[in-house]
Simulated assay, not measured.
Amino acid sequence: MKLFRHSAFPTDGDFTLDEDFDEDLVNEIVKRCGGFPLALQVVGRSFGKIPDQRIWDSTLLEWSEGQSVLESGEGLLDCLQSSLASLNDKLKECFMDLGSFPEDKKIPVTALIDMWAELYKLDKNGVHASSRLIKLSLQNLVKLVVTRKGATEVEGCYDDAFVLQHDLLRELAIRQSSQEPMEERKRLILDLSGYKLLDWWTEEKQPCIKARLLSISTDEMFSSSWCDMQAPEVEVLMLNFQTRESNYTLPEFMKRMDKLKVLVLTSYGSPFLS
């Protein structure tokens, strides 16, 4: 809150808001920034240029209707993209792979090692994979967490290590991965939550995709009625379930994935699958 107020109203170090502003409104805007310092600064500066509560109310309403904070914070998307511009191509690809995992969930380092060993021909003992994670961490693009007591590095203790990624950075990764037409993308990330099916999902003629990584996330609303997708190039398939059910029907299109090497199944809600 202090950082946001200072960015919006930097008046001689006094971080107080105009008394005409609704404090609850400000609290909600800060909450939407998710504690991300750059977002708090950029969004704060943007709002501070137009100190009109009606504009702030309108922006908050747009966010609640699905507009991204990345789109409304003047310069925020540009700032984040500039961070990616400093990465080499290998690190950039690894960063974008992280968007394949569900929002607000721990990403097991072991899953990343398995993925990257096949996608980028890295050593399966994880040395090069952990090196890439450490470099991304140093750029503040991910957070590495080791749960084993006394462990100080991710390398050598993969079972006790996971990665966290801020929601805005995950959104950035997905945006960067979605620049090309769907059929041409290297990685295809599909979210089928809340009865939200894609236009082509139920069509008789299914698209043929060239993605090497396919990630599909579903929730309790999903009917388990899979499409008949053509995905012959997929090497890594991720199925992320958000349900309490213990029985699952895997998609029929997996039978035609001749190049499939890694299958990652995660269930957030069921104790039977992880």
Rank of each mutant, 00 (worst) to 15 (best):
V236E: 04
L38T: 05
L192G: 01
V145M: 00
H6A: 15
M257E: 10
I55K: 11
V127F: 01
R185D: 03
W56G: 05
Y120D: 11
R175Y: 07
N240Y: 10
G73P: 01
L172A: 03
D114P: 06
M115N: 02
S215P: 04
S217E: 14
T243M: 09
L260Q: 07
E103H: 13
D228N: 15
S193M: 04
Q41K: 12
E203S: 12
T110M: 13
Q139F: 02
D20N: 14
P102M: 10
L198W: 00
C79K: 14
P271R: 03
V262K: 08
M238C: 14
A8R: 12
E155N: 09
S246K: 15
T266E: 14
C157H: 08
Q206N: 05
S86P: 00
P108I: 02
D20A: 11
K196M: 03
M96F: 06
D97E: 13
L98N: 06
C79W: 04
R45P: 01
S86I: 14
A211G: 10
F222K: 06
S130A: 11
E204F: 00
G66A: 01
L192C: 05
E74T: 12
R132H: 10
Y158N: 06
I55L: 02
L136F: 00
R175F: 08
L84G: 03
V42A: 06
V127E: 02
I113E: 07
A111Y: 10
Q139A: 11
Y248T: 02
L98T: 04
F253R: 07
L119P: 00
S217Q: 13
N140F: 01
L172D: 02
E203Q: 12
L164V: 05
G99Y: 12
S224W: 14
R5I: 13
Q67K: 11
S224M: 13
K106D: 12
A85E: 07
T16G: 08
N247L: 08
F253P: 06
G66L: 00
V234T: 15
L70E: 03
T110E: 09
F272L: 07
E62I: 01
E23Q: 07
R5D: 06
E233K: 15
L3D: 09
P37C: 10
L239H: 13
E28F: 10
A211I: 09
H166S: 11
L239W: 09
L239N: 10
N247T: 12
K124E: 15
L80V: 07
P102F: 14
L77D: 12
M254A: 13
C79L: 09
R148P: 00
P108M: 02
Q165W: 05
D258A: 08
L3G: 02
M229T: 09
K92D: 10
L214R: 11
D191V: 02
P102G: 01
A231P: 07
V154S: 02
S7K: 10
Q165N: 04
L144A: 03
L38V: 07
K261R: 15
P271I: 02
L190E: 00
C79H: 14
L168E: 03
Q230R: 11
K186M: 00
N27A: 15
C94R: 09
T16C: 09
L91G: 15
D114A: 12
R148I: 01
D24Q: 14
K255Y: 13
D228S: 15
Q165F: 06
A85F: 05
